[in-house]
Each structure stands twice: as C-alpha cells, then as structure tokens.
Design a protein around this nucleic acid. Structure first.
Ligand SMILES: NC(=O)c1ccc[n+]([C@@H]2O[C@H](COP(=O)([O-])OP(=O)(O)OC[C@H]3O[C@@H](n4cnc5c(N)ncnc54)[C@H](O)[C@@H]3O)[C@@H](O)[C@H]2O)c1
Ligand SMILES: NC(=O)c1ccc[n+]([C@@H]2O[C@H](COP(=O)([O-])OP(=O)(O)OC[C@H]3O[C@@H](n4cnc5c(N)ncnc54)[C@H](O)[C@@H]3O)[C@@H](O)[C@H]2O)c1
Lengths: 214, 214
DNA sequence: ACTAAGTCGTGAAACCGTTCACGATGTGAA
DNA sequence: TTCACATCGTGAACGGTTTCACGACTTAGT
C-alpha cells in the first residue's frame, strides 16, 4: 500500500495536469526542473514526489512523459473512473456541476441531490436532481464513495451524517464550519471567505511594507 | 508590524467566526479548549495563535469574547471594511457574488468585471457588471487592492497582469494553474479539481485499509 | 575510449508549525 | 487566609516537509 502525504498527492494531481498538456503538444520527455518551474516549486521537491510513487527517470532524458502519466494515473485513479455525488444544488453546486460535466475523463459527477422538492426531476447541467431519499440507493448502485457538499452551513452536519450512512467516505465540503466525522472518513473543507480574508490581510501587509520600508 | 503565518491568520478568521457566534448568544468568555474543540485543533494551538496577536486571557475566566473579537478584528480588518473586486462573472463568479452580498460586515465585493459585452451594465446580485476597461479607475476610486479571479484558465495570466497594473496586490484565484506574479503580490489559488482528486484518493485509501486490515 | 556536462536519486540537514510540559496566575471553597 | 484547582503563557521537544549536497548515471562530443 502506497503511503503518500496529502501534499504529495495534491502535487501529483498538478504534475499530471501539466504532463497531459505536454503529451498533447507532443513533448516526449521532461526534466524535474521543468515541472518545478511550471508549478513554482523546486526540482528536488518534484523528484521526491516521484520517488514516492516509485517512478524513475534517467539522467540526460529526464522523465518519459507518457510513462509518468501512466504511473501517476495508476496511483491517483480508480479503475473505471471516480464517480462523485454532489449534494446541495444551489448557486455554488450548480457552478461546480457545470464545471465538471465532461471535463475530466477520470473524475465524474455522477449524481446530484437536493432537499428542495422544486428541483427534483429537473435536469441541470446534464444531471437529473434527485431527492435525498434516493441517496443510499444511488450511491450504492454507482459505487460512489466521494461527495461534494454544497448545502447551507446550518444543514451541513446533518447532511454529512446522511452521507456517511449512505456509504460516502470522502467529502469535499464548502460550508464554512468544522464538521464532526468518524475517524475513517476523509473530509476537506474549502472555506472561501476565510481564504479571501487571508489574502486581503497579506495584501495589506505587503502594502504596509512598501510604505514603511525603502 | 505584526508577523503572523498564513496558517495563523487563517485560524484567526475562524476564531472570529466562532466568537461572533458566541457574542450573539450572549457568551461572555471562552476557554482555549472550547475554541479548540469547535475547530478540532488543540488548545495549545489556540493559545499560540492568540499569543501572536498579543492577546491575553486570564486563568479561570479564559478569554473575554468581546475583547478578543475586537483584538482579532484590529489585526484582520481594514478600517472602513475590505473592498474586493471580482473578475469573471461566469458560473462560479456569480455564485461567489451571491454568497458575499451583504454577508460579511467587513468584507464587501464592491465591483464586478467581465470581458463579455453582453454582461456590461447588467445588474447581478446587486452589482452592475463593468467592462475591463474600467478596472483601473474603479479599483483606484474604491481603494480596492484585493481581487477574486474567476476567469477561464486560458485568460488568467493575462488578466492577472491587468489586475496588477490596476493596483491589485492580493488575488484569490480559482483558475487551475500557477500564475506568475511579482514578488510583492500575494496570490492564493483554490484548485477545486485538485482538492476533489485528493479527497477521492484518500477515501479510496481508507477503504483499502478497512479491507486489508482488521 | 575517454571526458565533460547535466540530471537523477537520496541521506542528511534545515526549517517550520505543532505539541508537550510546566511554572505562573487568578478563583472559589473551606 | 489558605489551599486546591483549572487555565494561561511559553521554552523546549517533536514531527513532518522541504531543501541541500553529492555520488551515480547517461549521453554527446572529441
Ligand atoms: N456560493 C459561494 O460562492 C459560496 C462561497 C463560500 C461558501 N459557500 C458555502 O457553500 C454552501 C452552498 O452555498 P450556495 O451559495 O450554493 O447556497 P444556496 O442556498 O444557493 O444552495 C444551497 C442548496 O442546498 C439545498 N439544501 C438545503 N438543505 C439541504 C439538505 N438538508 N439536504 C440537501 N440539500 C439541501 C438547498 O435546497 C439549496 O439548493 C453554503 O454552505 C455556503 O456557505 C458558498
Ligand atoms: N465553476 C466551478 O465550479 C469551477 C471549479 C473549478 C475551477 N473553476 C475555474 O474557475 C474559473 C471560472 O469558472 P466558471 O465555471 O465560472 O467559467 P465561466 O466560463 O462560466 O465564466 C468565465 C467568465 O469569465 C469571463 N472572461 C473570460 N475572459 C475574460 C477576460 N479576459 N477578462 C475578464 N473576464 C473574462 C467570461 O466572459 C465569463 O463570464 C475557470 O478558470 C475555472 O477553471 C471553476
């Protein structure tokens, strides 16, 4: 069993994106420092990450693009493609649905759920919105164990529990709160307001530095 | 000049959210371990962060909620409120606009820009969409130095350069690529596809662990 | 065949953020 | 008043991640 940190896995995903692009442009091989430069990290970092997946390059040729793509995909991808459920088809949920439809070969939003009866049966970005009562059934039938959560914060904890009961084990949460989940559930929260506040803070700091220094 | 890491600033934003809620519920004081539990971090971590902002609590009373709120806000907030521009009013941009309108007292999306002439002058979630040619003028007039970037990846680098030329110093980018910016510009990228891939990976790992262990 | 140049793989060091551990401090009960 | 107790503030230890540094390797050119 491969043991990679979340940071390494995240970078592997980025390497793959670059490599896919290289392959499409007909580039056959690539050096660690080229990958590094594109992502603004160090070449050593790239080599470390590839070491984790057990891939070897060769001096003077670098890494074979096709082979590395295959190697990373073996690590990251689920056979048959990753099927994902989206729960909460509001403003953000819709944006995400539209974004993922058909964009990634191995990453497919396969079902969308919402509590609102007015949405049930409606076709949005290629998916028919289903009621929450269908969750367990659809998740089981499609072999889904990853979900995107875009419901209001006030509902999120309750919905997470429904998801887990339905067999979901990985959750990408957009509601701005810390969710309580059992040990074996993997959950990551994307807190946009917090990120924006952080950006604003450092933008201001840099401004101040410019003002007071030099 | 206060020197806090990005992680500390991010957590300060989360502390504030909790404290605001406490204040609204009439809670007068709070212990580090209570804040910690809500965010699923350690009490020591909380105390360290508050040390950075120079705030002191007292044994047996903990931290005064109102005073701490004030102290964090002094650090995080810009006098008069942070004004933010959003560039790229597509699916994601609209969702973000609708989310931020009137939700945060000190964090206001004050202007929205798009290249598409069909959108110019249209009122979306309370804002009139402006052409890119107005960028410099509006940014300067409103004292904006933070922007949310939700344009297609193919446009992002070019647009970032426009933003910087217009005086923007902090950027929250949603386009899935690494942008090249000068040293003094603070930029954070939220890569949703990468995050989702990471979640799917670890959800699968945990499944495997369950399968092979025990 | 040998040398020069450049990259790879990786042990060790450096770095940063988190956690431990404990003395200091303030509070309430006896 | 004094003691027992819970929490605070923080130096030191720890752990994970990144970077350094260098030997091994491959290839191109002479
Ligand atoms: N829109 C953004 O840009 C943005 C930014 C930051 C955070 N968020 C967070 O993302 C989440 C969604 O935001 P949004 O703007 O799309 O909100 P929204 O109100 O537009 O959509 C929420 C959707 O969830 C559905 N829903 C409510 N309760 C449900 C339940 N119990 N089960 C299933 N579905 C349920 C609603 O019917 C609605 O369709 C919120 O938690 C919000 O805080 C959004
Ligand atoms: N929608 C999502 O959930 C999602 C998820 C992950 C990443 N993203 C990224 O976020 C970005 C926006 O996604 P979206 O789904 O909203 O796309 P979209 O196509 O719906 O919207 C893009 C908007 O940007 C505008 N635009 C294009 N070029 C411009 C320019 N040069 N200057 C100003 N405006 C310009 C377009 O007119 C359009 O309104 C993309 O980079 C996408 O990859 C979106």
């Amino acid at each position: 069993m491969l043991s990679a940190s979340a940071k390494t896995v995240a970078r592997l995903s980025l390497y793959r994106r670059i490599l896919t692009d290289c392959a499409a442009r007909g580039v056959r091989s690539i050096y660690s420092h080229e990958l590094a430069q594109t992502l603004q990290i160090t070449a050593t970092q790239v080599r470390r990450d590839l070491m984790v997946v057990g891939f070897s390059g060769s001096p003077n040729k670098g890494y074979d693009v096709e082979a590395l793509l295959g190697s990373i995909s073996t690590v990251l991808d689920r056979a048959g493609g990753e099927q994902v459920a989206l729960v909460g088809v509001g403003n953000l949920g819709r944006a995400i649905l539209s974004y993922f439809q058909g964009r990634y070969a191995n990453l497919n939003v396969a079902a969308a759920f919402d509590q609102d009866p007015a949405l049930h049966g409606r076709l949005i970005h290629g998916l028919t919105i289903q009621p929450m009562t269908k969750l367990s059934e659809v998740v089981a039938a499609n072999g889904i164990y990853t979900a995107i959560l875009t419901v209001p914060a006030s509902e999120a904890q309750r919905v997470v529990e429904e998801l887990i009961r339905a067999g979901i084990r990985g959750i990408l949460n957009f509601a701005p709160l810390t969710l309580r989940v059992p040990e074996h559930i993997y959950i990551r929260t994307v807190d946009i307001a917090m990120k924006l506040e952080t950006v604003a803070f450092f933008a201001r700091q840099d401004a101040a530095r410019e003002v007071y220094e030099a």
